[in-house]
Design a protein around this nucleic acid. Structure first.
Lengths: 230, 230
DNA sequence: TGACTTTGACAAGGGTTGTTGCCAGAATTG
DNA sequence: CAATTCTGGCAACAACCCTTGTCAAAGTCA
């Protein structure tokens, strides 16, 4: 009670906080392996700990539930992506078109390079719980934002206001995701460069349209839509 | 052993096969309710049976696993959608632009009308198992095909070959799905007509681009993409 | 060296679920 | 009416899992 010498002391030469952080990282890596191969639903905590080379107790040291690990892993993957993309898109020394293409390529390359990432980011994250849904939602908002940056860089003529008010970047983000879905489910048969080029075409089509003097979409522009339901 | 009078007899005035079919339908409806509200992962078979007003035994009469029910439900939802869309898109008596818009509106309207459908079709179907993944994959192929039909109807000038070889319909299908995702997660705050109009704009942009004499994309057209990774 | 902390291995309690089986009563046919 | 089938309710069993706890061994510091 009174004589407590060096609580949280160093161990194996490393500080206590650092050791905990190390374990956390091991668990996240194990989560990537487990969720990315056998899937989130079919993975239990024991398995994660075995893969991490740790005991169950250490799981609860860093995470409250399995969901928490999934969220942490997902957030890390997405954050990595964002960092890469921003470092390319915001580097003024790279020619705009090259920067745009390179960031697009990075997006797909990362999935092919490690399909576990693809599985987690594209499939395992959905339909787990409201908490995880919110995580997904914010990541997708971020991706739409990246698309806005992307379009702004590739097509400087696009009106900022148009870009911000339009749902089109959301749609394009969806295209990127969905093309990834298909690519993954097809087992990455199509070559990476083909994927990138085709998506680039899609972006180009939309970008040109936006740059071509289309004002921000007014509300309920087409009343033909109101025609009676089938 | 010898005296077996009327096996599979009628009951309550209905044939045995019909009764089984009725129970199956009840189970699918219960699946929609359960998966569409509390979610697939958090639903057990007992709950489904309670909702269906049936006993566990009858679940195994029609389905082998929970997954089978999910697949059956999903297939039914998608099939319904396809039927509606085709009935609109292939009706030559409807003006092309109206038909296209109406089918697009139907797509989103169905989600708003019954959010359980949205949850099942958009969220619960992913990351369950390879079997379910295949179900999703085929549904998405179908949706891309519908988009092709849609574009063909809205922009008769688009070259058939271009349309068939391009990944763009896949991308647009992804946009539709993704916009739905966002719409659902935002609690359907944006009015249906706004959603439809914005997606229409996206389709228009791409359609005009495709119709504007762009030939089928040649392989590896842009070598700038090969620039070194970050 | 000795007191103390950290770690790893595993057990055990408590809960949930899938799946099958049983049984009494209602409905039906002959 | 009698025999039989269908139905609903529920029990039971095993399997799985989460979560906490125990305990000995290894490591570390004074």
């Amino acid at each position: 009670m009174q004589n407590r010498p060096a609580r949280n002391r160093t161990y194996g030469g490393v500080d206590a906080n650092l050791r905990e952080e190390d374990r956390r990282k091991k668990l996240i890596e194990a989560g990537l392996e487990a969720f990315g191969t056998r899937g989130y639903a079919k993975t239990n905590i024991r398995t994660i700990c075995r893969l991490a080379g740790l005991t169950e107790r250490y799981f609860y040291e860093s995470f409250g539930h399995k969901e928490d690990l999934l969220c942490a892993l997902y957030r890390e993957l997405v954050e990595e992506e964002r960092t890469y993309a921003l470092s390319i898109l915001e580097d003024p020394s790279i020619e705009s078109r090259v920067a745009a293409l390179r960031s697009l390529r990075m997006f797909y390359h990362r999935f092919q390079e490690d399909p576990r990432r693809a599985r987690v980011q594209l499939f395992e994250i959905l339909g787990v719980s409201p908490q995880v849904d919110r995580e997904y939602q914010s990541a997708m908002r971020m991706l739409s934002e990246m698309v806005r940056l992307f379009l702004g860089r590739m097509f400087p003529d696009i009106d900022r206001e148009t870009l911000n008010s339009s749902i089109i970047p959301v749609g394009l983000a969806g295209s990127m995701i969905h093309v990834s879905h298909k690519w993954v489910l097809d087992g990455f048969t199509m070559p990476l460069d083909d994927i990138v080029n085709q998506v680039k075409d899609l972006f180009t089509a939309v970008g040109k349209h936006l740059a071509g003097g289309v004002q921000a979409p007014e509300r309920s522009s087409g009343s033909a839509v109101h025609a009676k339901e089938g």
